[in-house]
Simulated assay, not measured.
Amino acid sequence: MRNFNLFRYGLISITGTAVAVLLIQLTQIGTVQAETREGNIGRGAVKMTGKALYEQSCLVCHGEDGEAVMPGVKDLSGANGPLLQDDKQLARSIREGVQRDGAMMMPPLGGNPRLTDKDIQKIILYMRKNF
């Protein structure tokens, strides 16, 4: 049986941002299922590190080492990157998302609606120590 590539014929068009959001959502579905299988039901039952939160919410676009892996995404490890902002500005960008030229470049909360302000602070601390 021959594969039919819908992208090749222009029947499906998807942007890099849409792919990133889809991947984030799929990652979260797997995380919720894993937490449920382990018996950790409820937000307070699971204490996640800044690294784990980054991997769950940011890694798909920003990469393992903070160097952008998606087109149009800022390099977190760069000398002129977003980490030059103070924690308050950086937290606001994570919470509200980032738009450039009217286009959503980063969804609010990195596409993870379960992120709390405490989680955001853990992510910022992890990024500052590692990038």
Rank of each mutant, 00 (worst) to 15 (best):
A52T: 13
N130Y: 00
P71A: 10
Q56K: 14
L115M: 11
G66L: 08
L84M: 11
G111K: 14
G110W: 05
T36F: 09
M70C: 02
G10V: 00
D87K: 07
A20F: 08
G50Q: 09
I94V: 14
F7N: 06
S77V: 00
S93W: 07
A18N: 11
L90K: 02
P108N: 12
G97R: 11
N112D: 14
G102R: 10
M127F: 06
N80M: 06
V21D: 12
E96L: 13
R95M: 08
M1G: 15
T27Y: 03
A68H: 09
K118A: 14
Q28Y: 11
L26H: 06
F4Q: 03
Q25R: 15
R37H: 01
M106E: 01
Y9V: 07
G16H: 10
E55A: 13
I12R: 08
D87A: 11
R8A: 11
A91G: 09
V21K: 10
D75I: 00
I124F: 03
T116M: 00
G39R: 01
G78E: 02
C58K: 04
E96P: 03
D117R: 05
L109Q: 06
L109R: 07
G81I: 05
I14W: 03
D101E: 10
A103R: 09
E55Q: 15
T27Q: 15
N3I: 14
V60T: 15
I123T: 12
A103N: 10
G50V: 05
I14S: 01
I12A: 13
M48L: 14
V69E: 01
T49V: 05
V60L: 11
L115I: 13
L59M: 11
G10E: 00
S13K: 15
I29P: 02
Q33C: 13
Q33R: 14
H62S: 12
M106G: 01
Q121P: 00
I24R: 15
P107W: 09
S13N: 08
V32R: 07
L125M: 10
D65I: 05
L11K: 04
S77W: 00
M1T: 15
T17Y: 13
R8K: 08
R8F: 01
G42R: 03
G102H: 05
D119R: 05
A18H: 12
R128Y: 08
N5S: 09
M104I: 13
I41L: 08
E67V: 13
A45V: 09
G44T: 04
F7R: 03
D86C: 05
V32T: 11
R100F: 04
L53R: 13
I123D: 05
N40L: 13
G111M: 14
A34L: 15
V60D: 05
V69L: 02
G97D: 06
G16T: 01
A34Y: 12
G102Q: 03
Y126A: 07
Q25E: 13
N3A: 13
R2E: 14
E67M: 11
R92E: 11
V32I: 12
K118Y: 03
I123N: 09
K47T: 12
D86L: 06
T116W: 04
G81L: 04
R2C: 06
L83P: 07
L53Q: 14
P113F: 10
I120F: 12
G78Y: 02
D117C: 03
G102T: 05
Q121M: 05
R114V: 11
S13T: 13
P107K: 10
L125Q: 15
C58L: 11
A68Y: 06
A68I: 08
K47S: 09
L76G: 00
M70Q: 08
T116C: 04
Q33D: 06
L90T: 02
M127W: 03
L115C: 09
